[in-house]
Amino acid sequence: MNTSMQFRSASVVKLLMVLDFLWDRGPDYTVPAADRARLEPMLRSSDDAAADYYWSTYGYTAIVDRMVGRLGLTDTAPPDDPDFWGYTAMSARDTVKVYRYILEKAPAPVRDFVMSNLRQSTRCASDAFDQHFGIAGAFDRPWAVKQGWSGSSYPDGTCGPVGAASTRTAAAARTAPAPRTAPAAVGTAAVDLARPVLHSTGTVGTGDRSIVAVFTLHPAGTSYGKAYTDIGRLTRSLNVPGGTPPTGRWYGTWSELVNVRSEPVLGDNVRTRLPAAVEVLVGCQKRGATVSVPPYTNDWWAYLPQYGGYISNIYISYPDNRLPDVPLCPSPL
């Protein structure tokens, strides 16, 4: 693995924005209420409107230049186009340095503010993308994550209840413009700005035992479900001290926006929706309402512990109605 390879950072650069804002705000590093209202969703739900505010208010690319000097980053460079903060170049190696600063050198109030918010990462980001890929899917809690994604071929990443609309604003959309036809220079490095990226960064295990940074670049046209599945498999293959793999079996799914329901019945009980054709962890299965997708019918349902609900087995990529290596869900007491 090339830990120094530079990628466009997408939302991972928000870590630098937060640290820049908190730098030298002592002695108690109090975060004003107005800033807390922006910074918390920026860290937890990757809110782009908040990032636009800090980027424009505190100097655009000067933020990156300041943090490069402060943290001794070697693979990080500001974007040539100052309007696109997501085009900041970063590497896995530099991202680990950022987390090591937060955990080992940052003032305690800064460390606690950043890490406590990353531990509260929401499944649905502010732009309605399912951001619990990579670390968040590969390991049981405790973990803390800051994810990144960029690519116009990712409209199938929507999560949330049926009818939920994306909250991406016109200003926030500036972070994910139409891809360019060829890679362009970012700072002093040639960084691919065209192909989709998906990044998972953070800590895993009790006491933030391990720092993990997984940066991925995918072929043009890769669906969100495919990229989500690929980064999940890659992250699960890592030997991460302190990381505990979740219990269950991984299966692929098909169809778009499959409903995850609180119980294995049809009705007004939708908790969220799956990204299209994504791999999911199945904890157990049970019989429930019959679902029909001609010419098939199925009354078996799979419980997805990471989503807290059920999907019909008819949407799982397996030829039989019942999954062979998944236990029955326990009956309620």
Rank of each mutant, 00 (worst) to 15 (best):
L193Q: 01
P41F: 08
T253F: 05
T203C: 08
V191W: 02
S255R: 14
D80M: 10
D35K: 12
V64A: 05
A92V: 14
N298R: 00
V280D: 03
R119G: 06
G243L: 07
G232Y: 01
T3K: 12
T272C: 08
V13S: 05
T222D: 05
Y154A: 05
S200A: 15
A10M: 01
V31W: 03
N2K: 15
S11P: 02
T244S: 14
D268Y: 10
K105D: 12
D156Q: 13
Y58E: 10
S91E: 01
A50V: 07
I211Y: 06
T272S: 14
T169V: 09
A136N: 00
S9R: 02
W149L: 14
I102E: 03
T244E: 11
V110C: 00
R271Q: 08
P332Q: 13
A302Y: 00
V162M: 06
G248S: 14
N117I: 03
T201R: 07
A138E: 00
I63R: 05
D130G: 06
P183G: 09
F215G: 05
V191C: 05
R119E: 10
W143L: 15
D94M: 07
K97R: 15
A164N: 09
V191N: 03
N321L: 03
L257Y: 15
P241A: 14
S153N: 09
Q306D: 02
D24T: 10
T88N: 09
Y251F: 12
V13M: 09
A50E: 00
M67N: 06
A49Y: 04
M115S: 08
V31G: 07
S91A: 05
G232Q: 08
P324A: 13
F21M: 10
P179R: 09
L328R: 12
D35Q: 15
V260I: 12
Y310G: 02
S116E: 10
D20W: 04
Y296L: 00
S292I: 11
A77Q: 02
